[in-house]
Design a protein around this nucleic acid. Structure first.
Lengths: 335, 335
DNA sequence: TTGAAAGCGATACCAC
DNA sequence: GTGGTATCGCTTTCAA
């Protein structure tokens, strides 16, 4: 293994000088710098991460806690992961992947062992049991999502309540008087996943405010579940003309089943989907969407984390305004 | 921070004794063990990962290189990632996530900085430019996938050539004489992604052997791409009665478009999909599949990696036999 | 502008 | 069965 001493010897300087050349923490004569940098390249020197962490109390690693559940939309989860790693690397941090399944103890372990400098936590629940532990961690923590009681934790997410309202308002503005929400799996609601509840609340409140008749339905991923969800939905109110779909995974099945039923989109039924922009065009009809800005949220999460590491105090809750793009799946209701 | 010395003092023993209690590398009297373990719990001691890595030259971290491309099936990638983290944790290893985008230099960096003990690499290309670097790394490496020239690297994957043949044989056995392959995006073929080429080869060779007329078509993810792919496919041979789909992401669009065209599955057209078992039932028709055993492959990759860390020599290439499950999407051809 | 040396917190060898 | 301590490779203070 090539050590800092090897580099120092090769360059004819002290190890500390090599360290300073690398960190830039004190001024170095151009000549010395050249010599050192050349030796570094020639020897293929890479500082030993462990030694560095031990001496500096900094690992340059961020930990990301991801849900592995299949009742969530994996494609969206993947988008978050992708944007977080990419942003982390852009700031010279590596990313350690933790799973929610390991529970709170894993967070404790990673923080106390100095495996990572900070944590980013996904799939937050309204009353997330990890919050107290996270607060006690004495390492920066950023949540992607927001519990009911952030309790001083930093959070970043799409403003799902506003997103729910935005969908209702769009349909109401088009003239729809009776609409329905097709939401995530029952399991997602059951464990009180933060975004699901917030969206539902925004949807419901806006529907009341606009005096639009509205129902909401939880829907699992299988084709059968989608089908019976639609059965239930139209049985409850045959006059429904607008659908808000907060469950990207069921969109293909849902659109296909609607065609089976002879309900044309958007002539008979308007559809608004909450999903990543990139998925709007992958269907028979191009979808009116409220975008889930996964890339932006992931990047922000990393930036906020790094700001904390730089000393900024925690507690900011940043909810991004929803953006609706009308495409071909929504129009005025029939008649 | 709680150190090993704190624990030692609390227990009234030497630091080395605490270390040995933890590692189990020498025998400890029951009494001492009890004392030490109690102090560890009371103080909430977690060994400092950096210090440990420095002293022992072991990080207990595995690095996983994932593709971030959207032309790949993200859901499948996510399944691999999930099984790899889970298996790694089961062996007491943490997982560091690297992206293919960072290129070969990142592998060098992670290996040389002793950030991880070993690497697992996904999205392998037939002539993968990372292979020489990987060989020079002097850390264990396991590929998920297989380049044309493994050159002594350890590989694990589904046997995609056999999978391609299996699909053809299934359709041929049912009596189909004219079939087509709907494959991954052009981009996937262009960068010579290992599994795509192997599958195509198996498909083509088996078709020749069975004297079945066969064409193959690359297909991007958008609805339009799927539609024009089917246009092209039926224009080339209107008599096609069997479709092999090696591109899970287009399945919903493809099935929906077939219905549009009035081609019933399986009455007019049989469909065999290569995808994770879990996706077989998420469509209007339950799909005959050749399973992509992501969970198994991920686990195996981790196990092989750990065996290498234990001293086993590299070079094993392990290709899992494909397993076909017939469901409702394939049947004898019409007439 | 540079060098010397004291840690950082474990592990593992050498004694006893 | 246990303790003492050199060592791992780097950062950073103190001195010059």
């Amino acid at each position: 293994m090539v050590t800092i001493t090897d580099v120092a010897n090769a360059a004819g300087v002290a190890p500390s000088t090599v360290s300073y050349v690398i960190s830039g923490k004190r001024s170095i004569s151009p000549e010395t710098r050249r010599l050192v940098e050349q030796s570094i390249r020639k020897l293929g020197y890479h500082p030993h991460a462990g030694a560095r962490a031990l001496a500096s109390s900094k690992t340059n690693v961020l930990a990301l806690v991801v849900p592995l559940r299949t009742d969530l939309n994996v494609a969206v989860v993947m988008q978050f992961v992708a944007s977080v790693v990419t942003a982390a690397r852009a700031h010279d941090y590596d990313l350690l992947l933790l799973t929610k399944d390991e529970g709170p103890a894993a967070l404790q372990r990673v923080a106390s062992s100095a495996i990572a400098d900070a944590l980013i936590v996904m799939d937050v629940e309204a009353d997330d049991p990890r919050v107290p532990m996270l607060l006690a961690l004495d390492r920066p923590v950023v949540l992607i999502g927001a519990p009911d009681e952030p309790a001083g934790l930093t959070c970043v997410d799409l403003d799902f309540a506003a997103a729910g309202a935005r969908c209702v308002n769009h349909l109401a503005d088009l003239g729809h008087r009776s609409i329905a929400l097709v939401g995530p799996s029952p399991a997602v609601y059951q464990r009180r996943t933060s975004y699901a509840g917030r969206f539902l609340r925004g949807f419901t409140e806006a529907a009341q405010a606009r005096r639009v008749s509205a129902t909401s339905h939880s829907c699992a991923h299988s084709y059968e579940a989608v089908s019976s969800c639609l059965d239930e939905l139209f049985a409850g109110d045959p006059g429904i003309t607008g659908l808000v779909v907060h469950n990207e995974a069921v969109l293909p099945a849902l659109l296909s089943d609607l065609r089976h039923r002879g309900r044309r989109v958007p002539e008979d039924l308007s559809v608004v989907a909450i999903c990543p922009e990139s998925m709007a065009e992958n269907h028979a009809v191009s979808l009116t969407t409220v975008a889930i800005p996964a890339a932006e949220v992931g990047e922000l999460a990393v930036e906020m984390t790094i700001r904390h590491l730089g000393g900024q105090v925690a507690g900011e809750v940043r909810l991004l305004s929803p953006q609706l793009t009308q495409r071909s799946s929504s129009a005025a209701p029939p008649n």
